[in-house]
């Protein structure tokens, strides 16, 4: 099983965006790299296995409930899952909570490419943050929609850049990844 595919699987449930929309950002692999360099492999594996198993067994609201129960409210997996969600929406890595770091963190001995501190993942990531399409606009400072578009009724912008319609998460994408 490809770990990147697992990463997308958990990301779909977390973000509410479907897999093709997430892949279209072109930034998933960078988030995956950040995650795997800052969180111990064992915990990531546990998160992926758990998420895949849940998605296999449950759908829709039931899946969300189980996801909360098994992952989001779990002291080991919850903070990691929330950080993945924040990466997708805000393009930021937030330092993991103090208690998590004390218990599960592996202090980086040598300064690596990434450190577990607050940082913007990259210039391109900022532009691809999912919060912007979610709130119906474009990232501030990029993807300019064109002169005068702000005068239109929301949703009517003729020149608005649209990276593809955001369909609801489909069952197929949630469950059957392999």
């Amino acid at each position: 099983m490809d770990k990147l595919a697992d990463f997308y699987q958990v990301s779909v449930v977390l973000t509410g965006y479907n897999r093709s929309r997430l892949m279209a950002t072109g930034i998933g692999e960078e988030y995956f790299e950040v995650l795997t360099s800052l969180v111990p492999g064992k915990i990531i594996d546990e998160l992926f296995i758990c998420s895949r198993a849940l998605a296999h067994e449950y759908k829709g609201e039931a899946l969300n409930e189980k996801f909360r129960e098994q992952i989001l409210s779990n002291d080991r997996l919850g903070p990691v899952a929330r950080n993945i969600l924040k990466m997708w929406y805000l393009s930021l890595w937030y330092q993991l909570p103090q208690s998590w770091r004390e218990t599960y963190g592996v202090p980086s001995q040598t300064p690596g490419k990434y450190q577990d501190i607050d940082f913007v993942i990259s210039e391109n990531a900022y532009i691809q943050g999912l919060v912007w399409p979610a709130l119906g606009s474009h990232p501030m400072g990029a993807k300019q929609p064109g002169y005068g578009t702000w005068a239109f009724k929301p949703g009517e912008e003729l020149t608005r850049i649209n990276l593809g319609t955001d369909h609801p998460v489909s069952d197929i994408e949630e469950g059957n990844l392999s």
Binding site: F67, R68, A81, R82, L130, A134, L135, G136
Partner: peptide, 16 residues
Amino acid sequence: NMFGEQLKNYIASVYP
């Protein structure tokens, strides 16, 4: 404690 569709829909209905 929001995530998934709930988070997306909340942002879509409140932020604009």
